[in-house]
Computed example of a mutant assay.
Amino acid sequence: MVKQYESRAPAYGIVARTLHWLTVLLIAAQFVIGWTMPGVHKDTQPVGLIAWHLGVGAALIAVMVLRVVWRLTHRPAPDEALPPLLGVVSGITHFLLYICLLLVPLLGWINASSRGWTVRLAGVVPYPSLSRTGSPFGHAMGDVHGILAWVLFSLIVLHVIAALFHHFVLKDHVLQRMLPNAGSSRDSTHNR
């Protein structure tokens, strides 16, 4: 039998919730595009789904920079009722999610630069090149990008399972704290 506890931490603030769900939408779009776009080869041009993949990746980088800045300047309220082991596992999982959410698009950007492609935010604002055209390092980062995308996918699955475990097994309010309709009276600057 799983011991129940009652979460006493306040709901995440509107900014944290908005950035979280925007990240979810971008990642979902990115995985769908990534799985359906044609393979990238030596002479591939950044058009069609590949252009969309670059654009969504650029947006994801921008959102993740905002999330990291927000997280560093708005410390989350700890859930003191959370059992210590769950707190450690949660902290490690969130840390790894942030690392992968930053690294995967960054490595894709490096790879795009090595192909001579320009990554643009909203199709307008160009990001600087992170590797020279033809760079073997930049090309290799494309392979690492693909591998880490699967690691990120696995972490997301773990994250979703944990949220559902909290909701259906522990029957606490951890999941509700991040839902868009979380009570404004309990809002804080909580962000992960």
Score class of each variant (00 low, 15 high):
Q4T: 07
S7T: 05
Y12L: 15
G13S: 10
I14V: 12
L19I: 13
L19H: 03
H20T: 13
T23K: 03
L25R: 08
L25G: 15
I27F: 09
I27D: 10
A29S: 13
A29Q: 08
A29C: 12
F31W: 14
G34E: 05
G34I: 00
T36S: 15
V40R: 08
V40T: 08
K42A: 15
P46R: 02
L49K: 13
L49P: 03
I50E: 01
W52N: 05
H53K: 01
L54P: 00
L54S: 04
G57I: 02
A59E: 15
A62T: 08
A62M: 11
M64K: 07
V65C: 13
V65R: 08
V65H: 06
R67V: 07
R67W: 01
V69L: 15
R71E: 14
H74I: 03
A77P: 00
D79R: 02
E80D: 15
E80Y: 10
P83G: 08
P83L: 05
P83E: 04
V88F: 09
I92F: 04
I92Y: 01
F95T: 15
Y98R: 06
I99D: 14
C100Y: 02
P105L: 02
L107N: 13
W109N: 10
S113M: 08
P128L: 07
P128I: 04
L130Q: 09
S131V: 01
R132S: 12
R132P: 00
T133D: 12
P136L: 13
P136D: 15
H139P: 01
D143S: 12
D143F: 00
G146H: 01
G146Q: 05
L152T: 11
F153Q: 07
S154H: 04
S154M: 12
V157S: 08
I161G: 09
I161F: 11
I161M: 11
L164D: 11
L164E: 14
F165W: 12
F165K: 08
F165N: 07
F165C: 04
F165Y: 11
F168W: 14
V169H: 06
L170F: 04
D172Q: 07
H173R: 14
V174Y: 02
V174H: 05
V174K: 03
V174N: 04
L175S: 06
R177N: 13
M178C: 10
L179C: 06
L179S: 09
P180K: 06
G183K: 12
S184W: 14
D187R: 03
S188N: 04
T189C: 06
T189S: 14
R192Q: 15
